[in-house]
């Protein structure tokens, strides 16, 4: 995040960090006890799914707090239009965790923007652990920045008609150099509606981080909300590992089961 400030611990409780091979590479957001929403380009095909870890309840990347939780990834669902109509179009991924998230004041889900959400005059914020300068400096502290939405037609004028698709939206303070940057991808753009926070965007791409005329381009979450719902409601939960029975306990259960079977026959 360029032009941001350090975030307090419970302010963005839906923020997640996507780690690959032990390093933060992208952001994400909690949308369910088993699901993290992120960007498809964070999960390129040549990456090994087993090398991904998800962290929630984190503010400082180097310090696990009382509410920090770590998860392995069970599956990643990439939108079928990713890269189809635009090199980074359809940039959305659903990450199913192997075990469920325990919610607390520091770990909570964000609401998903409904398909017909109207965006205007909103106060919206982006968060992330990405670069904090155009030279690529990073911060371990989660950064937050308030970003004005840039009208879609204006964004098309800035980037070109073919670069900004209907599944994208733009935000950024081009005058004060406030924007998202590398390492923020996958993180949420959230807005407050009557004390309820709703995610409207996923950090996706941009013309560098600090070109004054180019705002950040986000995946438009409302465009994909039905797809998100469909997968969360229809994807089976991960298989939970069974507790290992000791040989003695296993033997006792076997005896009990056999006794019950005999009794039922009698």
């Amino acid at each position: 995040i360029l032009g941001g400030v350090d975030a307090l611990e419970t302010k963005w409780p839906w923020q997640a960090s996507v780690h690959y091979a032990g390093f933060h590479i992208c952001g994400g957001s909690i949308i369910d006890e088993y699901w993290i929403l992120s960007a498809a380009h964070c999960f390129d095909r040549n990456k090994n799914i087993k090398a991904f870890d998800m962290y929630v309840g984190l503010v400082d990347l180097k310090i696990a707090g009382n509410h920090t939780q770590w998860f392995e990834v069970n599956r990643v669902i990439i939108h079928p239009t990713y890269g189809l109509y635009h090199s980074i179009g359809g940039d959305i991924a659903l990450v199913q965790l192997k075990t469920r998230i325990v919610f607390s004041d520091s770990v909570l889900p964000i609401c998903i923007a409904p398909p017909d959400l109207t965006l205007s005059n909103l106060s919206c914020w982006a968060t992330g652990w990405g670069s904090i300068s155009r030279q690529g400096e990073t911060s371990n502290k989660l950064q937050e920045v308030r970003l004005p939405l840039v009208p879609w037609q204006l964004c098309r004028l800035l980037y070109g008609q073919t670069d900004i698709l209907p599944d994208m939206l733009c935000a950024g303070n081009v005058r004060d150099m406030k924007t998202a940057c590398e390492g923020d991808s996958g993180g949420p753009l959230v807005c407050e509606f009557d004390r309820t926070w709703v995610q409207i965007g996923i950090v996706s791409w941009g013309q560098g981080c600090a070109y004054p005329m180019y705002p950040t381009v986000f995946t438009r979450v409302s465009f994909f909300s039905k797809w998100i719902h469909h997968h969360i409601e229809n994807t089976p939960l991960p298989l939970q590992p069974l507790p290992a029975l000791s040989s003695t306990l296993g033997a006792i259960i076997n005896v009990l089961m056999t006794s019950l079977a005999v009794l039922s026959v009698l």
Binding site: T10, K11, W12, P13, W14, I31, D32, E33, W35, F103, D105, L108, P109, I110, C111, I112, P114, D116, L117, T118, L119, S120, N121, L122, V190, C191, F193, D194, R195, T196, W197, V198, S225, H229, I232
Partner: peptide, 27 residues
């Protein structure tokens, strides 16, 4: 103005926790 949808249309996938409701501390 922002058009807020009725509360019933808001999506909370988790059974026990409402989405988008961060803990607010009194000053």
């Amino acid at each position: 103005t922002a058009h807020r949808h009725p509360a019933s249309e808001e999506v909370a996938f988790s059974r026990d926790v409402a989405c988008g409701q961060r803990h607010v501390q009194g000053k």
